[in-house]
Amino acid sequence: MLAVQRSAVVSVPSNAPEHCPGTESELAGKADACNGCANQDICASNTPKGPDPALPFIRDRMAVVKHKILVLSGKGGVGKSTFTAQLGWAFAADEQLQTGVMDVDICGPSIPTIFGVASEQVHSSSSGWSPVYVQDNLGIMSVGFMLPSSRDAVMWRGPKKNGLIAQFLKDVDWGDLDYLVIDTPPGTSDEHLSVVQYLKESGIDGAVLVTTPQEVSLQDVRREIDFCRKMGIRVLGLVENMSGFVCPGCKTESQIFRPTTGGAERLAKETGIQLLGKVPLDPRIGKSADYGVSFLDEYPDSPASDAYLDIIDKIKKILGGESAL
């Protein structure tokens, strides 16, 4: 019935008419074979054909970024942004390293709040937009810095979002970066396709997939793994967040989000993807995010901090091992 269209990889959809010219062709939507095709309008309306004019600029800008890491999860609210922030902070703890954090969640940017820079604005200079610096070596870019007020909704359809993502990659004066961590919105849609396509030439080091232990979330992560496979992105590993809760009163651990189907561990085994670690639920993580302070610096004694640092070490090792080759 409904074939999952792989337009991003194969330009001829499986449900297309026999002589489909391909969705990326100049003739898409205009060829004789397109008459009567259910998707003719869509093809015909996608006017810009051929390579995106932004690509060479992005390549230049990204040439000085050593590692690019995507933080993905199919489901929302599993802790992508929180994890991105901890990763950013942990990288930036080394004063020799330059780190950038880019938030491509256009409709629900949380990164500014989590880093405690929600009221900042972006300045533009002759060399481009300058990111907001939380520390000397930690720059951030998010659509949250461009809204007149935090209450404003960004009601944009795909093409506008893509335009902004292209700008984030080509117009932001990131400078020389050791790490660029990219926080994404939930799902597998415009934002994800755009980031991956824009960065194809300069190469993405890999993706970290964040999940919670329940099957509902794992289901979405499986889709995300499928997405990475289709797009040819390496999966660095899985992180299981909100894994168990230690009651601050009696110190007993209980499972709020019970791993009914074996959790990330089983998924890791099934798919052969490394499980980087499990981060327990700590109410202070959410609080730190609300106040915009680094959880790792505030509560270094929490078991969650240990888990985070352990995961980050593993990621560094995976990335480091690669650059040494």
Partner: peptide
């Protein structure tokens, strides 16, 4: 979906349809 692990990688116009 044929398999529950299949991803739906669609841009806006397809979602709209």
């Amino acid at each position: 979906l044929k398999k529950k692990g299949d991803s739906v990688v669609w841009r806006g116009p397809k979602k709209n349809a």
